[in-house]
Design a protein around this nucleic acid. Structure first.
Length: 573
DNA sequence: GCCGTTTTCGGCCCGACTGTTTTCAGTCG
């Protein structure tokens, strides 16, 4: 699928046009088209072949022509031309806080700033400060922005950000509890985005300045970026930006709505409000001078004629229309999860014995689980050969006798080998209760064909971490997800939502694509330690962002339902 | 550049903050 490629080019087009000082509305049009395409559940090449590009909201004649040219020739003439007219490192330069397109254009035109190095030079030699409209403070802010980019510039996984948000909330409740009327995460953390740029916390209080003071004086704060009556911004642990915003209690709901975003979702809501003669902002919803609501978040949605929308859906991906029609999905919840179907033990590279892990799972409230340790080719992870695997199966059988209302399944995470075969023969696989098949090596050796071959094995229940991406470290392998979805639909194989914080694979958009095709997903933590078990909520959050309902998620099934599902798929294959 | 039960032309979300201004531009979310 070339959806991501096309979206990236259109977003870069927007950057180029912005740098050139084009009309903001034109720039916005490119940004919107880029976003709609990146979140498309259909393959853009299919739409193109079927001459249906115009059905994408935000894609009109002009942008359609660009996409057409790209898919036909692999390049866009106008894009290539624009690239010639701008600094070499434009896209990099534009990521510097406080250094926007106007300033970048000025620095390029007047001083020839093309790279980060050039920018550092003109900051240091004072030539930037001499330009019209620039002054000592602006220059200082750009310098700080550059530093910030180097220390806290990159996006961080939700798996890292969420615990930090919770620690800040705990700290504030302990140290400012008596002047707080409410405190919660907002922004992309509340929406469970897979990565976040900063951590937003919202406070309800009548004493904003005091709350902000306590916030900026937290022990972990290594730098204060700003502090006022309603807003404080800090860096903690030299790495993570945390913003706290304070509002009075009567604006709590409106502020929650406003600061949770996303921006695209909010823009749509404000358009709808405007058409209905209302105005919404962070303080409430208004008709003329009259305040109609704002203390509770659902008031905003109800007054605009729609259901309250769960934060995970707020991306302008159709959730507003669904809410207007009363057709929002009934999203899967953490309490629906009955099992974790992919965890490791001491047999391979996990830290816990079978018994200790099973007890921990039971304590999580699950009713069953599956051990899926690595297979023999995963030597780096102490993978099990046939003999040790069958020993493990025996130990699991014995272990089950210790539990009355909890079932331990014996499984494997069998390697999909470079030639597409599996690391265990069918004779072994058929003795197991549950089989996850994953690619762990030779990423460049036709992962699509290998995954398809694995799905065609009747004993394979789930494909583990299907795209192989690592959120902070590598893109997934080159895999044709359209074909994977086709075959998964045919064989009834489920696809894993690996909840491990650095994977979150499938991504939210991919999950939505899968379930629209009737494919089941399994949300698994891939845990090796006790502390990993908690990541289930990351997987559930990601699945919710992918519009997954309970029926779409394999591990919301009871163990009996799971066995029926397996039997049907194994016979059908 | 997109879009249309107000419009095929003239709109296109809203506000805070900052710094450089003498009335506003740029950046951010």
């Amino acid at each position: 699928m070339k959806n991501a490629e096309v979206a990236e080019i259109l977003d870069k087009m927007a950057d180029l046009l912005e740098f050139k000082g084009e009309l903001p509305f034109k720039i916005n049009a490119y940004r919107k088209a880029s976003r709609m395409i990146s979140e498309l559940t259909e393959d853009i090449e299919t739409l193109w072949q079927e001459k249906r590009l115009h059905e994408i909201p935000g894609v009109g004649k002009g942008i359609q022509g660009k996409i057409d040219e790209y898919l036909a020739t692999g390049t866009i003439t106008e894009f290539e031309q624009l690239l010639q007219e701008v600094p070499q490192e434009l896209f990099e330069l534009l990521t510097i806080p406080n250094f926007g397109p106007k300033t970048a254009a000025l620095a390029y035109k007047e001083l020839g700033v093309e790279t980060l190095e050039d920018l550092k030079k003109v900051l240091d030699d004072g030539s930037l400060a001499k330009l019209p409209g620039m002054g000592p403070k602006k220059v200082e802010n750009i310098r700080k922005g550059l530093e910030l980019k180097e220390t806290a510039g990159s996006r961080i996984s939700i798996g890292i950000a969420l615990p930090i948000a919770e620690q800040v909330i705990d700290y504030m409740n302990e140290n400012a509890g008596d002047i707080l009327d409410g405190l919660s995460a907002a922004g992309s953390v509340r929406r469970f985005r897979e990565t976040v740029h900063d951590i937003d916390i919202l406070a309800a209080t009548e004493q904003g300045a005091e709350v902000i003071r306590i916030f900026t004086e937290m022990p972990r704060v290594t730098r204060v970026l700003g502090a006022g009556e309603t807003k404080g911004s800090v860096i903690i642990d030299d790495r993570f930006q945390v913003d706290l915003r304070a509002v009075p209690l009567q604006s709590w709901g409106a502020a929650q709505q406003y600061f949770t975003g996303s921006k695209a979702h909010n823009v749509r809501l404000r358009e709808i409000a405007k058409k209905s003669g209302y105005k919404i902002n962070e303080y409430g919803i208004f008709e003329g001078e009259k305040t109609l609501g704002g203390r509770k978040e659902d008031e905003i949605y109800h007054l605009l004629g729609m259901e309250w929308i769960p934060p995970e859906l707020r991306e302008d991906r159709g959730e507003i229309e669904a809410a207007q029609e009363g057709k929002l999905p009934k999203l899967v919840q953490l309490k629906d999860i009955k099992a974790d179907l992919h965890v490791h033990s001491k047999y391979s590279d996990g830290q816990l014995t079978l018994r200790d892990m099973a007890l921990a799972m039971q304590a999580m409230g699950y009713s069953y689980m599956a051990f899926c340790d690595h297979s023999k080719s995963a030597f780096y992870a102490n993978g099990l050969d046939e003999k040790r695997l069958l020993e493990q199966v025996q130990e699991i059988k014995a272990l089950n006798k210790e539990f009355s209302d909890f079932v331990v399944l014996a499984g494997t995470e069998v390697d999909i080998l470079p030639d597409g075969s599996l690391d265990f023969d069918d004779e072994i696989l058929q003795q197991l209760d549950f089989v996850v098949a994953s690619i762990h090596s030779a990423f460049k050796t036709d992962p699509t064909a290998r995954t398809i071959a694995a799905m065609r094995n009747p004993y394979v229940d789930v494909i583990g971490h299907p795209t192989g991406r690592l959120i902070t470290r590598r893109a997934g392998f080159e895999i044709d997800l359209e074909r994977i979805f086709d075959v998964a639909g045919e064989t009834g194989t489920a696809l894993e939502v690996n909840a491990y914080w650095d994977r979150l694979d499938l991504s939210d958009v991919n999950i939505r694509q899968a379930i629209e095709r009737g494919i089941k997903v399994a949300i698994n933590t891939d845990s090796h330690h006790l502390e990993h078990l908690d990541m289930m909520r990351l997987g559930v959050g990601t699945a919710r962002r992918g519009w997954a309902e309970k029926k779409d998620v394999l591990n919301t099934f009871s163990v009996d339902q799971l066995r029926k599902w397996q039997k049907r798929n194994r016979l059908g294959a």
